[in-house]
Amino acid sequence: MVEVIDVTDWIGDEHHAIFPVGARDKEMLWSPETRVEDLKPNWPYLFKESIYRYQDQYWTELVAYIVSKYLAVDVPKVFPAIKQTEDGIVCGSLIEWFYDVDSERFVHAGSYFKRIIPDFDDKTGKQHNFSDMNIFIRGLAIQAGLVTERVEWLADMALFDSLIGNTDRHQENWGVVFQSDEKSRLSPLFDNGTSLGHERFLDKVKDWDDNRLKAYVMRGCHHLRVNRENTKQRIKHFELVDGISAANKDIQKYMQQKLDTLDLEGMLAEIEDLTKIDIDVPFTQERFDWIKRNIVMRLELLKEEVKK
């Protein structure tokens, strides 16, 4: 059973106390020096609250992390957490920081897009596109000792974001970790809360049949565009998967093997266990049922897409 972490007495990071990027309130905290099970001692963690309108949204970060484990995709570890304030207890997701702040350096992808596209709009990210993404990742492999297998990373991103229905993989939600002057790696896929149908109120979708759910799923788009000229049209999730798998037979086999060997039953059981956690804003059985329907539908569609 996942334990709820109480971060009330954790020390805030004086340099990165509040993060302005994104819609949800978040703050950097340091774990205690004494070892706590499953937590790194004296390590930065991001405490992230839900958007006010969607009180249980913070659970999507943890569900997405569970999905990533079964899909074998690199995503930072996540825990449910609480913080006691003057106004009462605040619930949130606690996300393990993905690089060593003392020895490594992280650069958001947006910084590279601004170099490639002089008039890049970092507020809307409308020029965030797959074509230029490939250009600068290839450049990292040549000039910055990229240790990540870049094509597999792209395949993992497309599969993962499509399976959870993530619409917010914008230029600030991925980037490059410089391990030294000669080596770098692409970041884990972090900030996964805008996914899994979190924006749907359960009383509005409880009577949806499979056709209506499929139509909803098929409308979902990734944040990426195809190229910098096509700023209005995001790539649909399954079109992104199709484009990557169709371009490389080896990667198609890589993606197909991941989908075919995914333990759906085990993954759903681990997600459903979250409903047993005692916390002020719980993960309800109704929310699990909605997420389950989404994941099962998406997995079926992904398998069909990759086998084309």
Rank of each mutant, 00 (worst) to 15 (best):
D289V: 00
K303T: 12
T148M: 03
I244L: 10
L202F: 00
G266R: 06
H170M: 11
D87H: 06
L240E: 11
A247I: 07
L140P: 05
D260Y: 09
L163D: 06
A158M: 07
F160V: 06
V75R: 03
V36E: 14
L29S: 07
A17W: 08
F238L: 14
F47P: 00
V306D: 08
M267T: 01
M1F: 11
K307P: 09
E300I: 15
H15Q: 15
F201W: 08
F79I: 02
S184K: 01
T60N: 13
W97H: 13
G12H: 04
L29C: 11
L46S: 10
S111P: 02
L140Q: 10
W290N: 04
L224E: 04
A81P: 02
A23M: 08
D242M: 10
E152L: 10
E86C: 12
G22P: 04
T85G: 14
G88N: 06
K308C: 01
I51Y: 00
L196P: 09
P20D: 09
I235V: 14
R138I: 09
E104L: 12
D250E: 11
A109G: 05
L146E: 02
F190Y: 12
K26L: 00
I51Q: 03
V78T: 08
L274A: 03
A155E: 03
F120V: 11
R287Y: 12
A141E: 12
R185F: 01
F160I: 04
F283W: 03
P20V: 07
Y65W: 14
V226Q: 10
H198F: 05
W290C: 03
E172F: 02
D87M: 05
A72N: 15
R293T: 05
V177D: 03
T275L: 11
E3D: 14
K206V: 10
L140N: 04
I82F: 06
D289P: 00
Q257T: 15
S195E: 01
I271W: 01
K292D: 06
V90N: 09
E286L: 06
I82H: 08
C221W: 10
V7S: 08
K236I: 07
L224A: 06
V226P: 08
P20W: 05
H222R: 13
E104Y: 11
R293L: 10
K307D: 12
C91V: 02
Q127R: 03
Y58V: 01
T34C: 11
Q256L: 04
R287C: 06
T231D: 10
L213S: 02
V306G: 07
W30A: 00
G165F: 14
M1S: 12
D102K: 12
R234H: 09
A247S: 14
D250T: 06
K206G: 01
I279G: 00
